[in-house]
Design a protein around this nucleic acid. Structure first.
Lengths: 184, 184
DNA sequence: GATAATAGGGAATGGTTGTTCCCGAATCAA
DNA sequence: TTGATTCGGGAACAACCATTCCCTATTATC
């Protein structure tokens, strides 16, 4: 089931919600129409399930990228680098289902908007935690405004997905090098 | 005609491309179906015209916001502030047609993708110009990497539109205050 | 003033969409 | 073996979509 859901994630990322037909989903998930409707109430339910699946996978990727750093500052740097990498190339072109949900559905579907908000807030809380860790271990100055910096970094990460989907190239080291000035 | 196009812009911003039907457009533009198809070849042509209209209006707003600053650094600050304001409240909830086009259509429609890219590059060039002005007038240090900083700022502005559409509140002064560290 | 040309309005149309319904195969119980 | 139940598959359906076509005013031309 997770493997079928992973395929649904890919389609929703690439084509968004409205441009994805049930036919696109059955083709990708290798299920017949009836089977999809046996497993999910309707198209929105498939999307929500794909959304949660995507969020879980990306969350693990982001956390394990951050874990590669030896202090708060380095963990933040690895997290940002990971975001740039995922915003680029074939995966960047495919796109992010959270950004897609925010842009395409948050004005139309309160349920999706709630999930998008929850996801953004989870990410922001995680970033804020990393900043605080850095302040505790001395790698980030204590005068850095935690909440404002975290929110700006959320803007940066979401913006990279937009720019990456538009296929503008992003140089990870250079971009993150500049972004780290926010921790000065 | 521009007033009808402005109304089309609002609908496309709010609902995106695929969720906007011809019926939505005729209702908003106060034109009959046949009249829309007399003025435009098809739905994509309406979208492209709305896109260009939006880009022109926003461009003027951004430039005149920047012009309020007395040096390069201040012009950059006013530009970012303007972006935060437009990403918030009722306009933020409505959304940005460039971000919408990038996320919803850049994988499906090469023509839209080209326009999105052109728009992003125009904005990036403008920001890079402001940075150079600041370096020339002494308000921005010469060691600031112009191109990388400009690209990161594009990510910030596009990201703010995503976050604003999801209805997370953005505090202009605080957020821009942090972002200005990128010019240190 | 008569006629041609244009512009706008809206009904008709063919295709596609999301969803439901029903059928056949396979699994399990007795 | 028989009967009941579940499960996947796909045809059928109603609604909606983008687009076309045609009709009616209005304007312009002579």
């Amino acid at each position: 089931m997770d493997t079928a859901l992973d395929r649904a994630v890919r389609v929703f990322c690439e084509r968004g919600y409205h441009a994805t037909s049930i036919g696109d989903l059955t083709a990708a998930m290798q299920l017949a129409t009836g089977s999809v409707y046996k497993a999910f109430r309707d198209k929105q339910a498939v999307f929500l399930a794909a959304f949660e699946r995507y969020a879980t996978v990306r969350r693990d990727q982001t956390r394990s990228a951050a874990a590669r750093g030896g202090n708060g500052r380095e963990r933040l740097r690895h997290m940002l680098l990971s975001y740039v990498e995922h915003s680029q190339g074939v995966e960047g072109r495919r796109g992010c289902i959270v950004v897609g949900g925010a842009v395409e559905l948050s004005a139309l579907d309160p349920e999706v908007r709630a999930r998008v908000n929850a996801q953004l807030e989870t990410n922001e809380t995680f970033i804020a935690g990393l900043i605080r860790e850095g302040q505790a271990d001395g790698s980030i100055p204590g005068h850095v405004e935690v909440d404002d910096t975290a929110r700006l970094m959320i803007c940066i990460t979401q913006g990279m997905r937009v720019v990456g989907k538009a296929r503008l190239p992003l140089d990870g080291e250079r971009l993150v090098g500049v972004a780290m000035k926010l921790l000065a």
